[in-house]
């Protein structure tokens, strides 16, 4: 050990005092992730509040970690959750299994499933990390109505896919940005 080595060591300490601090003050200050961050999933809604999910299970099929469980259901005239014949009666994502790869998002034929930037997916209970449909559904925006209710934006489901955005805009709904979920500052994609 040389004579000047202790001084060298103090030099490191001293010089660090003038560098940018890398410490995160999480959870007091939460970091905003990149816009395309693969966070928690969200089940989106049509502008009138009907669910976009048709329960087709393509997300479950695509999932390499077998994290998604879907059960379809039959819409009736009296009880309608989505436009068309079919809706997702049960929808569960197991975040103990999910690897955040986003293949489910690519598989979704109706853009019902997207990922938001919420990343706080940790808990002390395995059961709590199985998110059900209630946890995953996007919050109702002004102008949206909680299903079940009849189709408000057209006669058939075709109208929803073809004219949905225009109809929503006509109805005076904000349709550019997605919903802001409680507290955190994620951006819907």
């Amino acid at each position: 050990m040389g004579l000047l080595d202790p001084l060298k060591g103090f030099g490191v300490t001293f010089s660090t005092m003038f560098k940018k601090v890398v410490t995160e003050s999480y959870p007091e200050v939460k970091k905003v992730p990149a816009p395309r961050y693969h966070g928690r999933h969200q089940l989106n809604r049509h502008p009138d509040g009907l669910e976009k999910c048709v329960g087709c299970e393509l997300c479950a099929w695509a999932c390499p970690a077998d994290a998604i469980y879907v059960e379809g259901g039959d819409n009736t005239e009296a009880e309608r959750y989505s436009p068309g014949e079919r809706y997702g009666r049960d929808y569960q994502i197991n975040y103990l299994r999910c690897i955040g790869c986003g293949l489910c998002i690519e598989a979704c034929p109706t853009r019902a499933l997207t990922m938001i930037s919420e990343y706080e997916l940790a808990d002390d209970d395995r059961q709590k990390l199985i998110y059900t449909k209630e946890d995953l559904l996007a919050p109702l925006l002004p102008g949206m109505e909680a299903p079940p209710h009849p189709m408000r934006l057209g006669q058939t489901e075709q109208d929803y896919y073809v004219k949905g955005p225009d109809l929503a805009r006509e109805a005076g709904q904000r349709f550019t940005n997605g919903p802001q979920t409680n507290g955190s500052q994620e951006v819907q994609r």
């Binding site: 299970e57 479950a60 099929w61 059960e71 379809g72 039959d74 009666r89």
Partner: peptide
């Protein structure tokens, strides 16, 4: 069996 499952389930 309407909408109950998919073959891969």
């Amino acid at each position: 069996y309407r909408f109950r499952a998919r073959p891969f389930d």
